[in-house]
Design a protein around this nucleic acid. Structure first.
Length: 581
RNA sequence: GCCGACAUGGCUCAGUGGUAGAGCAGCUGUUUCGUAAACAGCAGGUCACCGGUUCGAAUCCGGUUGUCGGCUCCA
């Protein structure tokens, strides 16, 4: 968030951050100020304090903020030459501010904003006086490293939100409350999709029958697409020799992100629990000599990988330690690169569309030339980055370039989607890689009879099945479209005498390929309807005397209610229609 | 990993030093019902785990594990 948009709401939030800093200064003498910018929906300020602020302190800080607001202090801008600016902050015993001033580029205007006794280094702009700041709330505290580096001291960050009116503030707080109800961790349990077990291990998801069905549905969808698009399935083991990963470069770059190595007791050779599928797929390509006529070769696998993520990073299904990628590696000639890359992007966008995810961002990660973790030659990097940018330009897509976001072996294009709490997650990803083919000396025989080096495209349209399902749960608030719903149809016989007919209908629907289940519990129909509604089953069939008599089913659509009686044939036609939506 | 917080039956929560409670879910019966909660009874917890303080700990203290919000990281 280096580029801050200067609209009025941002100014208000920025000023509220100052207001909070002043209040903290009054309540915690000796506080050192770091930075305090406006952010989406609010603001934060980082403090270095004699003792950390606790959540229970927030009310007192808010109270002091309101008091300072009531003083209605005029907010005044003041510009100072560099030396005087440094002296001002040094006199105030504010070392972080001194460091910030010293790092400002030559010729930059150095400005301060003063409200009453309190002053802060700041580019501004701000509201005219503290009296304008009334509708805010402090939300939570967090630790944050000075300048974002874990080598530096950890400061205390306080997050808050601020709005023009009381109504806006309340709306926002309500929105957050509503969003929490969509949390996939809560819905995942309520809907019986997945679980975690302390005894199995943190970050290791267990998929329950309904969640497993959802996974199967997504896998079937992707397999069908891949079949149309000329992919071939492969299967590779969950572990591989460390030598393989040494050669690929993963071992050096991601040592700390691997589960500890396993040792073969006979040979003493070590094995890696695989964090990636690429080296395995590369071995399959290298198994035989390929002609240019065979290329592109597209090897696909739903590969489960394990990454030892830092414990503090784990978040439900959105960040786990064991997950399944819809992975594929394409081996292509330089001439094919552009078309193949565009083909992958097309699949990725089609996938998002089918899943109903329309709100996403495209980020192109290129390398940071100053960082040494990137392998391979400058020429290869230039060529790979150019291939990606040319392709998205040709496709007319909106995108952002992010320096330093490339994989260590190549640049990539990521699709980013937000969760219920508006946190952004990387979903689909595609990378262009000249470097691993070089490391593994991959070849094909060209038209000219000479040996040539293929280029690899790594891609995963879902990214991780686990993360994608977590996100889809939040996107749909658990109410999946018919084709995705783990259980599509619930059959509710009104009383015992309708069971035989209900069973018959259930069998017929399963025969027709629908995920149907009979709910013949000894409960009143209304209760069973209610519970199936809450389980987000898209369709219910209520069966009573009339239906048995007329050989019909009464169709009830989730969220809509009774659609009336249909024959079984009509109902099946309707379900086929729903499946296509 | 770091900062802060939290942890009571399957779920949601009450209980702040004197030997654990409610609703929902579960089980058993009764009820056989036309589109979002029938009725009654029963059962269920070493209060996350380990240690300490105390005559006595769910409650106070320390540690561990897990979870939550951030930071850092994300092939």
């Amino acid at each position: 968030m280096s580029e801050v948009v200067h609209d009025e709401l941002y100014d208000l939030r920025h000023s509220t951050a100052h207001l909070m800093a002043q209040a903290v200064g009054e309540l915690f003498p000796g506080v050192k100020y770091a930075i305090g910018p406006p952010i989406e929906d609010g603001f934060y300020y980082d403090f270095d304090l004699p003792r950390p602020i606790r959540e229970e302190d927030l009310a007192a800080i808010e109270e002091r903020m309101l008091e300072i607001s009531a003083r209605d202090l005029t907010i005044v801008r003041q510009e100072l030459p560099r030396e005087e600016a440094v002296k001002l902050e040094a006199d105030l015993d504010q070392p972080y501010k001194v460091e910030l001033i010293n790092d400002l580029p030559e010729g930059e205007v150095i400005s301060f904003y003063r409200q009453g006794e309190w002053v802060d280094l700041c580019r501004g702009p701000h509201v005219p006086s503290t009296g304008k700041l009334k509708h805010f709330k402090l939300l939570h505290t967090a630790g944050a490293y000075w300048r974002g580096s874990e080598k530096n001291k950890m400061l205390t960050r306080v997050y808050g939100t601020a709005w023009f009116s009381k109504a806006d503030l309340e709306d926002y707080l309500n929105r957050v409350e509503e969003a929490k109800k969509r949390d996939h961790r809560i819905l995942g349990r309520e809907l019986g999709l997945f679980m975690f077990s302390e005894e199995v291990g943190k970050g290791l998801p267990l998929w329950l029958p309904k969640g497993a069905t959802l996974r199967d549905t997504l896998i079937d969808f992707m397999k069908a697409e891949q079949l149309k698009r000329g992919y071939q399935g492969v299967v590779t083991p969950n572990i591989g020799s460390s030598k393989l990963y040494e050669k690929s470069g993963h071992l050096v770059t991601y040592r700390s992100k691997l589960y500890p190595l396993m040792e073969d007791p006979e040979s003493g050779e070590t094995y890696v629990l695989k964090p990636m599928n690429c080296p395995h797929h590369i071995m399959i390509y290298a198994n035989e000599l390929h002609s240019y006529r065979e290329l592109p070769i597209r090897l696909a696998e739903f590969g489960t990988v394990y990454r030892y993520e830092q414990s503090g990073e784990l978040t439900g299904m959105l960040r786990v330690r064991g997950f399944t990628q819809d992975d594929s590696h394409l081996f292509v000639t330089p001439e094919q690169l552009g078309e193949e890359f565009k083909g992958v992007v097309d699949l990725m966008l089609y996938t998002l569309k089918r899943l109903g995810l329309t709100d996403y961002r495209v980020r192109i990660g290129i390398r940071d030339p100053k960082d040494s973790k990137y392998i391979g030659s400058d020429e290869n990097w230039e060529a790979a980055q150019k291939a990606i940018i040319d392709a998205v330009e040709e496709l007319g897509m909106a995108y952002e370039i992010a320096e330093g976001d490339a994989a260590f072996y190549g640049p990539k294009l990521d699709l980013l989607v937000r969760d219920a709490l508006r946190r952004e997650w990387q979903m689909g990803t595609v990378q262009v890689d000249y470097n691993l083919p070089e490391r593994f000396e991959l070849e094909y025989i060209g038209e000219d009879g000479q040996r040539h080096r293929p280029i690899m495209i790594h891609r995963a349209p879902f990214g991780s099945l686990d993360r994608m399902i977590g996100l889809l749960v939040e996107h749909y608030a658990g109410a999946f479209p018919f084709w995705l719903a783990p259980q599509q149809i619930a059959i509710i016989p009104i009383s015992d005498r309708h069971h035989a007919y209900a069973e018959q209908v259930n069998v017929a629907l399963r025969e027709a390929g629908f995920r149907s289940a009979l709910d013949s519990r000894n409960e009143k129909m209304g209760k069973r309807i209610r519970e199936n509604e809450m389980q987000k089953v898209p369709v219910m069939l209520v069966l009573g005397d009339r239906d048995v008599e007329n050989n019909t089913v009464s169709v009830r659509r989730r969220g809509e209610g009774d659609l009336g009686a249909k024959t079984l044939e009509e109902a099946i036609a309707y379900f086929k229609e729903l499946s296509a939506q």
